[in-house]
Every structure is written in structure tokens, then in C-alpha cells.
């Protein structure tokens, strides 16, 4: 028994990697933590919809919209990296987010919120709206005011328009096909 073990040990030599004195065994394929670049984020929320662990969060706080990357909950799937249209989340091979301070696990950016012209609620970030404006302008499209409403007001507005349309139709005595 002993001789077999000794032979095994001799053949295998020293296996230990003396991290942290030596560099770790890390392949370049490793899916590590994300680096969140607040200057690039516009607060579109695409990342929060794909994240399986809800480690990316978007929250309305007062008249600000906060985008938050919680590394402590991140499962390193990199879905958000592929989803972010603005390159605000950069994939790295870093595994070093260890800390003794819980708050260090959060990366946040607070965006200025845009208020709905009708009800005044915060529903999107100013940056996002500016960006959409810019894109549409470059396509030569002017934005209708209706599009600046928050989703709720937009729904109400659409229903109102539909109703007005229907009443108009009925007045004219037109029968509508769908019951």
C-alpha cells in the first residue's frame, strides 16, 4: 500500500498553487463579476428583465431612478452583459469582490427621473428619453406629446381616444362590424 502511494505522490509532484503569492489558476473564459459603468447606463432596465437572480434592480426613489448592481446576489451568468444596449455592463474575469463591508457589494447609479406631463409621476429616466429623442430625430421623426406620457396615462389617453372615436361612429349611425 505504502509503496503505491509513494509512487503516486512522487509522480504527481507538487500540485499546490500558492495563491495569493502566485497568480490564481484562472482561464480567460471565466465568467467573473461585471463592472458597472454609471456614465454609460441610461436606465433603460433591459438588464433587470433578463437577470435570473434579480441582481440588477431598477427602483424609483423619489424623483430619481436608481439602477443597482448587487454583486452579492449575482450568479455570474452574464445575461445582462449581452442584454445591455449601451455597454454599461462590462464582463470581466475578476472574482475579487470579497469584502467585509456589505455596502461594498452594491454598485449604484441614480438617474434623474422624467415626470409624466399629465400625472407627474416618474416613469423613465431623463437620459433614456433624451436618447430616444435623439435617435428618432436622426430618423427625422418628431415625437408626439402622447409618447411622453407614463404608461398608465398613455393607456387612459388611448382609451379616451378610442371612446371618442366610437361615440363619433355611433352618432353617425355607422354599424361597427365587431360586436
Amino acid at each position: 500500500m505504502i509503496h503505491r502511494i509513494l509512487a503516486l505522490a512522487l509522480k504527481s509532484g507538487v500540485a499546490t498553487v500558492r495563491y495569493p503569492r502566485q497568480p490564481p489558476i484562472l482561464t480567460e473564459e471565466f465568467r467573473g463579476f461585471l463592472v458597472f459603468d454609471p456614465t454609460k447606463c441610461v436606465g433603460c432596465g433591459a438588464c433587470t428583465r433578463v437577470c435570473p437572480a434579480n441582481a440588477m434592480n431598477l427602483e424609483i426613489r423619489g424623483n430619481e431612478i436608481v439602477v443597482e448592481y448587487f454583486a452579492g446576489r449575482c450568479i455570474l451568468c452574464h445575461l445582462c452583459f449581452y442584454a445591455c444596449p449601451f455597454g454599461a455592463l462590462v464582463a470581466t474575469t475578476s472574482f475579487d469582490r470579497t469584502t467585509t463591508n456589505f455596502e461594498d457589494l452594491f454598485d449604484r447609479v441614480a438617474h434623474e427621473g422624467a415626470a409624466c406631463p399629465s400625472c407627474g409621476s416618474i416613469h423613465a429616466t431623463k437620459r433614456l428619453i433624451q436618447f430616444v429623442d435623439l435617435v428618432l430625430k436622426s430618423e427625422g421623426i418628431e415625437i408626439e406629446d402622447r409618447l411622453r406620457l407614463c404608461p398608465e396615462c398613455r393607456r387612459i389617453e388611448a382609451l379616451r381616444a378610442l371612446n371618442a372615436f366610437r361615440i363619433g361612429m355611433e352618432r353617425e349611425g355607422v354599424e361597427h362590424g365587431v360586436e
Binding site: S12, I25, T27, E29, F30, R31, I75, L76, C77
Partner: peptide
């Protein structure tokens, strides 16, 4: 010790040592 090689292989193939994802 030998198993560790498989873990590194998994990381190389998928990007994670265990949760291939």
C-alpha cells in the same frame, strides 16, 4: 488533486467551474 483538472477544464469550456450556465 486530479479532480481539480476537470474543474479547470469545465471553466475553460463554459466559463464557470461548476455552474456551467
Amino acid at each position: 488533486r486530479i479532480r481539480e483538472k476537470v474543474m479547470v477544464l469545465a471553466e475553460k469550456l463554459t466559463g464557470s467551474r461548476k455552474m456551467y450556465g
